[in-house]
Nucleic acid binder design. Structure first.
Length: 759
DNA sequence: ACCATGAGGATTTTT
DNA sequence: TCCTCATGGT
């Protein structure tokens, strides 16, 4: 690789000097398989790259990018490359840079939203915004929406503002401006027609505030491209090649946006989309799998390349995952083959446990053992359906002193203190940012309550000025009295002074002083709660991050688009995260707890989404399994506490859907008798590296061998006893699942193995 | 203006 | 169960 780098960078510099010379044969294509090569070298015309899990998708994408540059087909700023996450964009930028030998400048490489933001800054006037518009966060959106909803007297118990924001967002995801909403579309919220009207007002308010929300970045740009032919033509001239990552997750508006940019009057659409319909797990956020299924229809003459050689997982894991996903209909169909020569590997282990505590104990115990065998903790992940499921695991890992990190919990920029500090900075940069000003006007307490704020709003509207100007005005006219008066005077002085010194002292110093002088930092210093010091640390970190940027505006733009903070704790830690959060990652060992009906697949998804919902859950399961390189361990508990009450649970149907020859059931027999003291270790049966384990060793008997054949033992109408629910009568039998009417607990469905016949 | 109490709700969330 | 909110009392 290193040798190639110098060579390639020379070619690259030749390229940038407007002198595209054909690149001499280079080694960057050498270690690719034929399909990957095809995906890279098919540069002209529409191309869909169906890339299964672990088939080298990122590599293909980055190499293709570099290939287009190195063969002189385009200059760096003539390629549009879109990703979904900042992380993916960052990685792509780095890897393209590594291939070229120089960090490329002026690339149109970023998330959909970041690229739209960049475009929109150029054309803001077409939608009534100024070039320096602000981008709102969710808190701001809700606050604004509440204000607008106020006069409508909507019962916010039944119709929370969040719900309306959801409706609006879904409209935006589909590219629908208020004018494009038909009455038939507007039936989901409160009275018919209400949502549409508020949406319109909301959009107007945003323009008045010189602001837009996240969805607007795309919505405005789509509208501009739709209505301004010369703008569209400009981008057609720009973008000779388009690359799209995670195409299965694009929503309607992104699809429309891409199509506008890709379809030109003359010449082919050089758009290459990489995706995997089996990993589409964001339909609830507006993603349309249909986009990938209809690619050939959208782009006639499209070529399709399938990447099916998996370089990540063992054959056992691949086969298990393939068997599972085969239960979905309407797939484009891929067969993952192992591209590795080593091991067939261990089977996927399935462990039945009594409850979530035992589940956590077993997982933590297995991890201890792995660690004792020298496995790095950073190669271990526990992936769950929902965020709150991390809790028992955190507790257990904490007790055992095993270091872990929860990925994607409360994110850095979502913390209250960070949002506050950001609001201060926004007011500093833009005094007219009412939503930011409103956030901090009474933080710390300055004696400005809802009543005072109301007055200020009335005044601001009447004078047609921003909130902060209304404050200044009321200070002069002595309309503000009492404690609030001095406090607000001070606050306004802090902002004025800070603004004066911005150019001379530099933004970092000024921001620091502002947070100090406004008493904001003092507020946390005086706070006696245990989390206060941590909050101060976070603010310190925020100020440190500020030093990476040349200007305050640049920093604010970055933060509003890139809501994730660099994770610099690259230590050896176990990763706990949701299945959604794990997409795109891989680990040697993956624990998959909570595989129970109702939990995973989630009851709610099935209720709301029916069979489509179930299929998406199944894809989520597929994503989970395919994160594992060497080992996947599925767990299911017989009893789970949902909020306050215990519920008996039956194993997820997904477990049965994995072909049995790739599964090994463990531990259930022990658990059933609640012999928790000597809970079985996951790895006791054999060595971990384990060809041996799956081939020669006598295996722990399958659950079906151990458990009594329930349907024969427990007939309909039998009186039975259950550890948790006590006595009951069997009212239904379905193989080894029983429906039981318990005297105390009511009707439940339980595994036959967990009840015994009462005399 | 601020605090205390109770009802109600509770996935997934790349941007 | 536990956290967030809206409401009413001081």
């Amino acid at each position: 690789m290193m040798m190639g780098v110098t060579q390639l960078s020379d070619i690259f510099s030749g390229l940038t000097s407007q002198d595209p010379a054909p690149a001499p044969a280079s080694d960057y294509l050498d270690r690719l398989n034929p399909e990957q090569r095809l995906a890279i070298e098919t540069t002209e015309g529409p191309l869909l790259i169906l890339a299964g899990a672990g088939t080298g998708k990122t590599r293909v994408l980055t190499t293709r990018f570099a290939h287009i540059l190195l063969t002189g087909r385009a200059r760096p700023n003539q390629i549009l490359a879109v990703t979904f996450t900042n992380k993916a964009a960052r990685e792509m930028r780095e890897r393209v840079g590594a291939l070229l030998g120089t960090p490329p400048e002026g690339l149109w490489l970023g998330t959909f939203h970041a690229i739209c933001a960049r475009m929109l800054r150029r054309h803001a006037e077409y939608v009534g915004l100024r070039q320096n518009f602000t981008i709102l966060d969710t808190d701001d959106q809700i606050r604004l929406l509440k204000q607008i909803m106020e006069p409508y007297r909507i019962d916010t118990k039944r119709w929370p503002p969040q719900g309306l924001l959801g409706v609006i967002q879904r409209w935006k995801d589909r590219g629908l401006t208020p004018a494009r909403i038909t009455p038939a579309e507007d039936t989901d919220y409160a009275g018919n027609g209400i949502a549409r009207r508020i949406y319109g007002e909301y959009q107007d308010r945003l323009v008045a505030l010189n602001a837009c929300d996240f969805g607007d970045l795309m919505l405005h740009m789509l509208e501009i491209l739709r209505t301004q032919p010369d703008v569209l033509a400009q981008y057609h001239r720009y973008f000779r090649y388009i690359l799209v990552d995670e195409y299965q997750d694009t929503n309607t508006i992104q699809h429309l946006w891409l199509r506008l940019l890709a379809k030109r009057d003359q010449g082919p659409s050089n758009i290459a989309c990489v995706g995997d319909d089996d990993q589409s797990i964001y339909s609830w956020r507006g993603a349309e799998v249909e986009n990938i299924l209809r690619f050939e229809h959208d782009y006639p003459g499209a070529k399709i390349v399938r990447l099916e050689r998996n370089y990540r997982s063992t054959e056992q894991i691949l086969a298990a995952a393939a068997g599972l996903i085969a239960h979905n209909d309407g797939r484009l169909g891929k067969t993952l083959r192992s591209g590795r020569e080593d091991a067939t590997g261990e089977r996927v282990q399935v462990i039945g446990v009594w409850d979530s505590d035992e589940e956590a104990r077993i997982v933590a115990g297995a991890i201890e053992q792995l660690r004792a065998d020298g496995h790095p903790l950073s190669e271990i992940a526990i992936l769950m359906r929902a965020g709150f499921q991390t809790r028992p695991f955190e507790e257990r890992l904490m007790t055992l002193g095993l270091p872990y990190r929860v990925v994607g919990g409360l994110r850095f920029y979502e913390r209250a203190e960070i949002r506050d500090a950001m609001a201060y900075m926004r007011v500093l940069a833009q005094p007219a940012d009412d939503l930011a000003f409103e956030r901090i006007i009474n933080v710390p307490r300055r004696g400005v309550g809802t009543a005072a704020l109301q007055k200020l709003y009335v005044q601001a509207r009447a004078l047609g000025v921003p909130l902060s100007a209304a404050v200044a005005h009321q200070l002069e006219t002595n309309a503000i009295k009492g404690k609030a008066r001095e406090a607000l005077r001070e606050l306004m002085d802090v902002f004025d002074h800070a603004r004066d010194r911005l150019s001379s002292d530099g933004h970092v110093v000024v921001v620091e002083r502002m947070l100090e002088d406004s008493q904001y930092l003092a507020m946390w210093r005086n706070d006696k709660s245990p989390e206060a010091p941590g909050r101060l640390d976070n603010i310190r970190e925020l100020i440190r991050a500020l030093t990476d940027f040349g200007s305050l505006a640049g920093f604010l733009e970055h933060v509003s688009l890139v809501m994730d903070a660099e994770d610099n704790s690259g230590n050896d830690k176990i990763s706990l995260m949701t299945l959604h959060g794990a997409k795109g990652l891989e680990f040697d060992t993956v624990f998959l707890p909570g595989w129970e009906e109702g939990v995973f697949p989630s009851q709610r998804t099935m209720d709301e989404g029916g069979n489509k919902g179930l299929e998406e859950e199944r894809r989520l399961a597929y994503v989970g399994l395919t994160r594992a390189r060497k080992r996947a361990i599925i767990l299911h508990a017989a009893n789970r506490r949902i909020y306050a009450n215990w519920q008996s649970a039956i194993p997820s149907r997904f477990i049965e859907e994995i072909p049995s020859e790739h599964v090994e059931h463990r531990g259930q027999a022990m658990t059933e008798r609640r012999q928790l003291a000597n809970a079985p270790s996951v790895f006791t049966a054999g060595p971990i590296h384990a060809r041996a384990a799956s081939r020669n060793e006598p295996r722990i008997p399958r659950v079906t061998d151990v458990l009594p054949k329930p349907s024969t033992n427990i007939p309909l109408g039998a009186r039975v006893f259950h550890q948790k629910f006590g006595y009951g009568v069997v009212i239904g039998v379905d193989d080894d699942r029983l429906a039981i009417n318990f005297e105390k607990a009511g009707e439940k469905r339980v595994m036959a193995g967990f009840v015994e016949l009462a005399s």
